[in-house]
Design a protein around this nucleic acid. Structure first.
Lengths: 370, 370
DNA sequence: TCTTCGATAGAAAGCGCTTGCTACCGCTGT
DNA sequence: ACAGCGGTAGCAAGCGCTTTCTATCGAAGA
């Protein structure tokens, strides 16, 4: 039924071993033999049996890319870029070599799914795994991740973090590419402060994610530096209560990284503090929701209220007014992560590199009304 | 080093066969035995060797999802939805069964890559393949695809088309979910005509893609029906010349499905026909670029010129003014495709279902200035 | 001329799992 | 009491490939 190595060998009048060697190109084979084999492969339309090959060689050509939400361009861009360096004939070379299969796995932000996918990849003996997006900071989950990743690494799987900090005990990993979320958040708020804003609302992402925390910390650093941080405590979030901390800024509302959350959190913010003159959103998608809420309240951007985002996704420049935001080099980071996963690039010194975030000042922020 | 089935068997004091059967749950095993085995699995932290298992069973638990551009939410949404029905613990069932690994493959719209990914999936003996997005209509490529898919189907791989019409000789496939691009395009243009527009520019997608052609055909159907189609011939496109057809509408400009193309094509359109009162874009992303171009020319939307998109991606409602567009139930279609791929749902009668497109009238279209 | 060595091909032993077939056990039916 | 049977478990034969080790051949070195 299906054509096997042996069939090819028979037709080329060589042993199966020779065919295997021609196909893998890691052993000297006389040119004439090679040619004969290649012709037989062609004639028979032979396709290697991946599982058999992986079993025998104890390695596979699968590379996993874990993302939180593939419908979000933030992840789509990174994943696509990574795949560019990994998958199929993406690298232009028509033949073997980097012929790996990049697989994108959508965790939906769920810690369990993250772990399950890791197991699935471990089962497939994946060659490498790229983890994107912020990590959940629950100690239990971190421990589980750590254990799983260590096991993967021990089995020879390369581990690359992209856009998230490495695990505390990040020993096993090959490399981590972390975005400067804190610095970006700080500069964004500094920009607002320098414009004259004093009461700035913050629509944060979900709690317990590193990305959320870092951006928020940057924001607060800027507030502190300007002596603006002594807001009364209180403000509970819009999401599941959880670890309500005492000195939570009442100008901060947490929620998922989506438009709807941005809309609702902004309404809540406006209710709590009608005098805010600017709103910083956890990311651009949330910012879009914030803009809609602001407008629905009959206020203009940026005249009545400034709005800023984070990430600089492609649509941000087309918002009206164009969104002030922090640009993250998503594509470049993804591509680099892909290269690291393939071992095409050597890891940064110390295994971890911080990727700069660039402030993009556009029309959605302006000085508050005198 | 690594734990194998045999190790588990030894610890549970049973034969490897029994362990295998417990794990696969397709053969009667006494409850007490099962429990003993499960405990051993747990104790040893055993992880099945996927390649070995696939080799022996001659099937794998990989399901491929091919997309044109994963950075585009159009595909991201479908792919994510499909993965929901396929991957990991997505279905809530904690245990085995649908425990497949959905892999998203990014073709970048390149026919060669599409074929290569299909080969890679064939190599992995994928359980199913979901093909999304418009197909390239080159006869050579279609023939190659057809051959490849037939081979896959023969090997037991389930084939599902999602958002694209089946291949002409679509025998092998399980099912096809096609969007009603033609109908949606028609209704969109009818809406514009009913508003009073008579000169409507069209920023089309790349030539030779079914999606592009169908949407454009719908548009022209509407024009014809209104007796508006007798525009002088001419207008060459902005993309690679190619098969310039004689009666190409000069109000049509082709280009890739991205913002930049929308921007530039619109400028070109405005140059060719400064009197257009409406512009229909191939999709929402292109529409955003069109909006930017219109505004940069100092015109207002919709007062001076109406703009419409297609797809109703999440950001479209947040455009200012909100974009009139055609909604495609991307998530639902993706999920259904995923279910079909898993064999969880029976294929539609005839193997092909057309998915309705809904006209969403919003602020970006209005009657032309009196 | 005989040995030595580099280059190339083949034989064969698995890789870790699945599964058809056989074996066994304790009952029931007669 | 014995054949027959449903219910479980084990044996062993692969699945299709990789890779170590060995064999062969011709040319170069002594």
């Amino acid at each position: 039924m299906t054509v096997t190595l042996a069939d090819v060998a028979a037709r080329a009048r060589v042993s199966p071993a020779t065919v295997s060697r021609v196909l893998n190109g890691n052993y000297p084979v006389a040119a004439s033999t090679r040619e004969r084999v290649l012709r037989a492969v062609d004639d028979l339309d032979y396709v290697l049996n991946g599982p058999a090959s992986s079993l025998a060689a104890a390695t596979s050509d699968l590379v996993g890319i874990l993302v939180n939400d593939i419908a979000d361009p933030f992840f789509g861009i990174m994943a696509g870029a990574a795949q560019t360096q990994i998958g199929g004939p993406g690298d232009g070379s028509g033949r073997a070599g980097g012929e790996k299969l990049a697989v994108i796995c959508n965790t939906g932000g769920s810690p369990e799914r993250e772990l399950t996918y890791l197991t699935l990849l471990q089962r497939q003996r994946a060659a490498a795994v790229v983890l994107t997006g912020g990590a959940v900071e629950s100690p239990a989950h971190q421990a589980a991740m750590s254990a799983k990743l260590t096991k993967l690494a021990d089995a020879g799987t390369r581990i690359v973090f992209c856009g998230r900090p490495p695990l505390p005990e990040g020993d096993a990993l090959v490399a981590a590419l972390a975005f400067d979320n804190r610095g970006g958040g700080r500069r964004l708020t500094e920009h607002l402060i320098s414009l004259g804003h004093r009461r700035i609302g913050y629509v944060a992402g979900p709690r317990e994610r590193t990305t959320t925390r870092h951006r928020l910390e940057g924001h607060r650093e800027a507030l502190h530096a300007a002596g603006l941080a002594d807001e009364p405590a209180g403000g509970e979030s819009a999401d599941n209560g959880g670890t309500g901390s005492g000195d939570q800024d009442r100008l901060t509302v947490h929620g998922p990284y989506d438009r709807r959350s941005g809309y609702e959190a902004t309404l809540e913010l406006l209710r709590r503090a009608p005098d805010v003159t600017a709103i910083v959103a956890a990311n651009d998608t949330v910012a879009l929701g914030a803009c809609a809420a602001v407008r629905d309240q009959g206020m203009r951007i940026p005249q009545d209220i400034s709005v800023a985002g984070f990430d600089d996704l492609p649509f941000s420049v087309d918002a009206v007014p164009a969104l002030t935001t922090v640009r993250l080099p998503l594509f470049e980071a993804g591509a680099r992560a892909g290269r690291l996963a393939m071992g095409k690039e050597s890891p940064p010194p110390g295994g971890i590199a911080t990727i700069a975030a660039e402030l993009m000042i556009r029309g959605s922020t302006a000085a508050p009304r005198g």
